[in-house]
């Protein structure tokens, strides 16, 4: 690991000011991904500003009936929270489907959103990777790419975003609260992560020095009828090949409203808006669920090794929606 300076700050503005002066500095929270990347010298910050004890570690109800999750809330505390489990089960399920018990006890809400891709070439420093070393090329496009993106990728990068939590939050239309050198702002989670485009080295739209302080879940009555389904290569402790976060509101057999987001298919959590639009007002049945999934997946551009993700995504979308329409 490269040497670095470790700094604690008194408060959030102090942390933001400290990092703003260090172009090659990083915030440290749980460290479960960052410390690993530093050991591998994939990330080599010269300063870490520790924010784990600065941001809130509480989950609170908001005035509008939603929930505010402090950035330092651990993945395990968030998954175990009673309100989350009954009002937003998709989020609790997404969290416990990721990592291990030990990691979830360290990992934070803010850090989970900012974890880096698990693309094998990003981790293999002997191979070119535009995300790790801009301009060096993408080894995955013509390489082993079964884990890679089928939607929204670019010629520069086909990596996927690894978070399960963020997929559930995307379906729930969460807002990410950020404190930066120019003050505070609130970003719809769909605008936090970005497609790779010409700058795959940038995972998010955050500017240097901006710190995630909390995530807000707006009230959503039918989120109590939601679930997360994840398919991976072993039963536990693995990243998703494809996952889906779904919430469904059915009345008299008709879809009143629906939320769908996919994981493991793109550089960001993929909100399936086309499928959602196709379903609103339609009969809640398997044929319609399948047809809606197909509409979303029309844009899929599979690579050599990952064409299986298209039918897999179609099947788990259909299955999740069927289960949600039957369980009511």
């Amino acid at each position: 690991m490269k040497p670095y300076h470790y700094q604690r700050a008194r408060d959030i503005p102090g942390a933001v000011a400290a990092l703003a002066e260090q172009p090659n500095g990083k915030y440290l929270a749980g460290g479960t991904n960052l410390v690993d990347l530093m050991k591998l010298e994939i990330m080599t910050p010269d300063m870490l500003v520790d924010v784990r004890r600065l941001t809130s570690d509480r989950i609170e109800e908001t005035e509008d009936g939603g929930v505010r999750i402090g950035a330092a809330v651990t993945n395990s505390d968030l998954a175990a929270d009673r309100t989350i489990r009954s009002c937003y089960p998709v989020l609790s399920q997404a969290l416990v489907s990721g990592a291990s018990g030990q990691l979830r006890n360290l990992a934070t809400t803010g850090g989970n959103l900012l974890q880096r891709t698990r693309c094998v070439y990003f981790y293999d420093t002997t191979t070119p990777c535009n995300k790790r070393e801009p301009g060096s090329g993408c080894s995955a496009i013509d390489g082993h790419n079964k884990d890679h993106a089928i939607l929204g990728a670019s010629e520069r990068c086909v990596a996927t975003h690894p978070s399960d939590m963020a997929v559930a939050m995307t379906a729930l239309e969460a807002f990410v609260n950020v404190h930066g050198p120019d003050g505070e702002r609130r970003i719809p989670i769909e605008e936090l992560h970005r497609p790779p485009g010409d700058e795959p080295e940038r995972d998010t739209t955050l500017e240097h020095g901006e710190l995630i302080t909390a995530v807000d879940l707006p009230p959503l009555a039918f989120a109590s009828n939601s679930k997360y389904r994840k398919v991976r290569e072993r039963a536990s402790y693995a990243f998703a090949l494809v996952s889906v976060a779904a919430a469904l509101d059915v009345e008299d057999g008709t879809v009143r409203d629906v939320r769908l987001a996919l994981g493991g298919v793109a550089h960001k959590p993929w909100r399936a808006t086309k499928a959602e639009e196709a379903l609103r007002g339609e009969q809640a049945n398997e044929a319609n669920f399948r047809a809606a999934a197909d509409i979303e997946l029309e844009d899929a551009e599979p690579l050599r090794d990952n064409a299986f993700k298209v039918p897999l995504a179609r099947n788990i979308i259909t299955r999740a929606l069927l289960e949600l329409s039957e369980e009511r």
């Binding site: 470790y6 460290g31 410390v35 520790d50 990691l103 006890n105 360290l106």
Partner: peptide, 16 residues
């Protein structure tokens, strides 16, 4: 057990 909870000590920085 780190402050009462199981955790991977290999990914926790001592200074933190």
């Amino acid at each position: 057990l780190l402050d009462g909870r199981r955790a991977n000590s290999c990914l926790a920085l001592a200074v933190a």
